[in-house]
Design a protein around this nucleic acid. Structure first.
Lengths: 340, 340
DNA sequence: CTCCTTTTTAAAAACGATTACATAGTTTCA
DNA sequence: TGAAACTATGTAATCGTTTTTAAAAAGGAG
């Protein structure tokens, strides 16, 4: 391992000078600079990043905690984060939770050990007091999710409104018995979508049947299973609002497996607009989240935090868009529900 | 920031003692240990990981370079790696290449700066000399991919055989005009699959038409587009072997869009067996790679490298499995190609 | 008690960089 | 010409740990 001292000796200068040409900051005579640079190349010297980071107290690294990287929804957000980070010469590292909340806690500890400069969490399942305590001292931004009553900067869309809007879309198409397949209600995100769903039903004086609300874990398979549960209820459901495209895809699969046509016999709508949604058959009507912008905005927020500048707004709400494709059956122009 | 010195002072011992209780190694009198532990808790002291890593010259972190995390094939491999790493108390970090080879190079530099203990690369597109030079000095394992003539440990399946096998499966079903949609031939992996495809054709004395071999970039969209190119050739193709499930999915979509039935008018088979393949319609006949095992095996290999133990075998070849589902039309029992 | 081992602990030297401060050498300008 | 102001470099302290070395304390045997 060749160190800065080796370079200094070989070049006949002090380590301070080598450091100066490395950092490219203070003045160094061109002749010495060249000499140093050539010995660096000659010895194939690579500065020890650990030592640098320890001395400067800065890692220029942020970690992004992702609930499940196999969901392309998250990788699209990541893309936005990465692109933005690159611009400001930050490195991003991805930590995959793989559904285990304790992994999130683990990385929250990590920042206290100074191994990264900031955290962007796309989850919010860490113990409240840990989150609170850490966020007080270190730069943290929560994206896509948020925490009730906690003063942690976050960027999301208005999930309540969006869920309400897409439910109303189904209502406008003539549906009166709309089921809801969602994920764990412990996450605010899903509670919001649930609330939007309920509020749309209420607004249009439709009956609310909580048996039609099914809870899974946002995987294709859970969408599939919960749809089967719905079918087994033998209720006159003509439309399903899934709180995520992944679950919507599973639900469609289950409907087809049961011999129901989508959207003719039962319409399905999702949430997120992930890549697969437009390729699926039928293509999925859904709420498009501005994934890349969510990523960018959250990195920007984190950056101001890391630079210790004042944050103008804690909460950033971005726009969503209802994307109408085949699965809602908008082209069927139904006025009356198919099944009673 | 509370440091070890603060703890030492508060507890009335030297930093050495604090370090000893931290590391839980050398003998410390129970009374002092307790005293130290309680002040640690009291001051909420977290050891600075950077300083530890610098002093011990060990980060217990390995980085995994992933070509594209939005492909679930890679996240399944990652899962295997993560699980294994956890067992040995290593932390894994994910670096997403997002298709840009320069990112791989970047992380190859990283290891030279001592910021991780090892690298597992699921890509192999870095400049040969860089790879060679780095691998000589640092622990590196290549998984899923490999490099010609380079002595870098790797774990894969036998891509040539697997491609040959699935092509033969199509041939046995009566197909004589089989197209191949693949990814960039600069990666050995795809050259292997191509070679397997060719060798199967040759073995059965089928004509080889290089116009039926189309190159994309392993995205759904590229599969879609290349399938359209194939269709526009107006050749009597009755089956397509896509060198990846993602492209196969795109190809099926294109066929359906063109009004062709799959598998009745054109069979499609893929490679990898990703999650979506069994949910797709028709479900995909494909080559199952032992994704989790690939992950585990590559971490194990890296571990022996990191522990500077001798490596028994450079190359580890795992078993694949042909998974027969709907998209190959095995149930059609065709003897003669549908179209002439 | 004394002497000899064995445990515990402290002091100080690393790890590999950066940077505040000091100093020597050069210019600038009255 | 000499003081002032820069410029370029070196010295040494520092970041927060671990670990080697050495010394002090404790325990045991005679």
């Amino acid at each position: 391992m060749v160190t800065i001292t080796d370079v200094a000796k070989a070049a006949g200068v002090s380590t301070a000078t080598v450091s100066r040409v490395l950092r490219n900051k203070d003045a160094v005579k061109p002749a010495t600079r060249d000499a140093v640079l050539s010995t660096i190349k000659e010895l194939n010297y690579k500065p020890n990043a650990l030592a640098q980071q320890m001395r400067t107290q800065e890692t220029r690294t942020v970690i992004v905690i992702v609930p499940d990287i196999s969901n392309t929804f998250f990788s699209d957000i990541l893309f936005g984060i990465e692109e933005c980070a690159q611009k400001y010469e930050y490195q991003i590292l991805i930590a995959d939770m793989h559904g285990q909340p304790r992994i999130e806690s683990y990385y929250f500890q990590a920042i206290q050990q100074r191994t990264v400069d900031g955290i962007i969490s796309l989850s919010a399942n860490v113990a409240k007091n840990l989150m609170e305590q850490v966020a007080e001292e270190y730069p943290i931004v929560v994206a896509n999710q948020y925490l009730e009553n906690y003063h942690i900067p976050n960027v999301t869309i208005d999930n309540i409104r969006a869920a309400e809007a897409i439910t109303e879309h189904l209502i406008r198409l003539g549906h009166t018995h709309i089921a809801h397949i969602t994920s764990q209600p412990t996450t605010l995100l899903y509670r919001d979508r649930f609330n939007g769903y309920i509020s749309a039903l209420a607004k249009h004086n439709l009956p609310i049947d909580l048996e039609l609300v099914r809870y899974g874990y946002s995987s294709i398979n859970d969408g599939y299973e919960q749809m089967n549960v719905l079918l087994s209820l033998n209720k006159p459901v003509t439309a399903v609002f899934a709180a995520g495209d992944v679950m919507a895809v599973g639900a469609i699969k289950a409907l087809k497996a049961a011999g129901r046509r989508v959207p003719e016999d039962c319409a399905v709508v999702g949430f997120d607009d992930i890549e697969i949604s437009k390729f699926w058959e039928p293509s999925l009507t859904t709420v498009r989240q501005p994934k890349k912008q969510i990523g960018e905005a959250s990195f920007r927020k984190l950056l101001t935090l890391m630079q210790k500048k004042p944050l103008t707004q804690m909460q950033e709400i971005l726009d969503y868009e209802i994307v109408i494709r085949e699965s809602c059956g908008y082209h069927l122009n139904r006025q009356v529900p198919r099944r009673q």
